[in-house]
């Protein structure tokens, strides 16, 4: 399929409205097409900004109280029908609460994933993506001593297709994090290691594929590990397994 045809579907792609098969095909396309990739990222950014900008107006406390008292007032006025009315109000409140909780979790997760993707992209675009440049894990790991309030193990990459590029300290949700950069052929994989605070755990444990990036996240020994890459799900999984094994050792 040519770019023009994909471009016609780019809004549906950004809105996750394409059929699963087409969504996957689009994912594959953006990995190799800088034009569509940039356009998709651009649109994700605007969509996210609209989401933030759109939450602009809040009802006043007085208005909220007035509506609540009116609902209560109606219950008195229709005393004979108070049970169905109460059920209706309870049902509405339940639906409101469940919807709000789900929406809040989804929003928090999306914002966190967007922040992770932003750091990954901007870091790789920097003239030097790492502050400690070494393929040796015994050089990179000690470099973080005194810079972050925790420690972690790095995997032995001998015999794997990955190589260590280095690391640096970054901040995610105001939490200091070790950012480790690995390389697989011409692709880079960023690994964030940080304390698993409630705001960080919002990212969830499952793997995702958003904005053409593959993201994997899991918690171990009170730390949260997040892998993000454009290399593909298989490579993200392989590195994840190596990191999990290292964490247990």
């Amino acid at each position: 399929m040519v770019c023009e045809t994909w471009m016609e579907k780019i809004d549906q792609y950004v809105d996750a409205e394409l059929a699963a098969k087409e969504q996957t095909a689009f994912d594959e396309h953006v990995k190799t097409c800088p034009r569509c990739s940039l356009e998709a990222l651009d649109r994700f950014k605007v969509k996210q900004a609209v989401q933030i900008a759109g939450h602009r107006f809040a009802p006043s406390t007085e208005f909220r109280d007035r509506i609540q008292s009116q609902i209560s007032g109606k219950k008195v006025a229709t005393r004979r029908n108070w049970i169905p009315a109460l059920i209706v109000v309870a049902a509405m409140l339940t639906v409101f609460a469940v919807s709000a909780i789900m929406m809040k979790q989804r929003l928090e997760r999306q914002r966190l994933l967007a922040e992770i993707a932003d750091i990954h992209v901007s870091n790789l675009a920097a003239s030097s993506p790492v502050d400690v440049v070494s393929t040796d894990r015994h050089t990179v790991k000690p470099w973080f001593q005194g810079k972050i309030p925790f420690t972690f193990n790095l995997p032995d990459l001998n015999g794997s297709e990955f190589s260590l590029v280095g690391g640096r300290v970054v901040y995610l949700q105001h939490e200091p994090a070790a950012l480790l950069v690995f390389k697989y052929r011409n692709h880079y994989l960023s690994v964030f290691v940080l304390r698993n605070t409630p705001s960080i755990s919002a990212v969830g444990a499952v793997g995702t594929e958003e904005a053409s990036f593959t993201t994997k996240s899991w918690a171990s020994n009170g730390l949260r590990y997040i892998v993000i890459t454009d290399a593909g799900p298989a490579q993200a999984k392989a590195l994840t397994e190596l990191l999990k094994t290292a964490a247990k050792s």
Binding site: F57, F63, I67, M92
Partner: peptide, 30 residues
Amino acid sequence: MPLFDSLFNFAHWLTQDRTEAEDLVQETCA
């Protein structure tokens, strides 16, 4: 009433006026 906030926000964007938005949400709830 968490969805109440969303309704008010949407009403305010439509009406571009706080008082009208309040009236709209009140009528919607009723």
